[in-house]
Design a protein around this nucleic acid. Sequence first.
DNA 1: CGTATGCCCTGCGCGC
DNA 2: TGCGCGCAGGGCATAC
Length: 295
Amino acid sequence: MPEGPEVETIRRTLSPHLEGRTIAAVTVLTPGQIRHPDAATFIAALEGQRITGLDRRGKYLVFHVGGRLLVCHLRMSGRLYLAPAGMPLEPHTHVVFHLEGGQELRYVDPRKFGGFHLAGPGGEGLPPGFLRLGPDPIAAPLDPAALAAALRGRRAPIKALLLDQRVVAGIGNIYADEVLHRARIHPLRPAGSLAPAEVEALHRAIGEVLALAVARRGTTFSLYRDGEGRAGDMYAELQVFDRTGEPCRTCGTPIVKIAVAGRGTHLCPACQPPPPGTQAPERRPRPRGRRALVE
DNA sequence: CGTATGCCCTGCGCGC
DNA sequence: TGCGCGCAGGGCATAC
């Protein structure tokens, strides 16, 4: 599941191979992965165009091609990598960009959650969320006052806001858990209830966790690979994610898994004390039906 | 507006 | 051992 650090790693590994190259042809094997415009228009608009830059905003990869923006989101299982022309396509290959000179940029995505948006000359057709992205802590340090302002008065669990790309761009489920553990904050704490010192700890943790993840070239949890096919080394550094039942590396208490905002959430119950009135909910089943009204 | 829920889709882990 | 069920989850639409 590529998050900001993984997408940044893909960007860094692809960029030297792609910048200045021309797209000779495009093969779309699964039209549904072309979100905008339709596949035929997409192909016609890209063929013969030059890639002038490769950028990243949050979890979106942004190709500058022929003066337009080609935006790609990998979601859960998307991969983007270079291969020699003619190498057999692996299963679930949906799009192939044939580059002049013989290499191919391939898009593979078993779950088909990800895809491409090619913006028009005026910028129309971009993904809705792309236009509302908040500050990107991998690109520039977060402004602590802006973070505090974004949390003020909010009753949603702090983890839900860390996952909200309008608040901070690039954090996904793995790094949300890691950030909260480092900041010693329970994921169910209402965002607006954090004391100033806690917001400061959160701000610091966001910067540190993401910087370490980028330095380790991302987390290879299941299938993630960078643009050159290499795995990342961040998995070994994870403190809580995917460590249910294993001892906290700080205090030895077994890591616990709960559900927050519909997401699997890992935490240390000792390092991250629950908010008052919460008794460590163990994955409560989703509420079915509505409670009867009695007068 | 802020918050909550369901959907998309397929591989894989778990239980029997 | 083999099989089948259900979970996993980012962003978006929709509901309240």
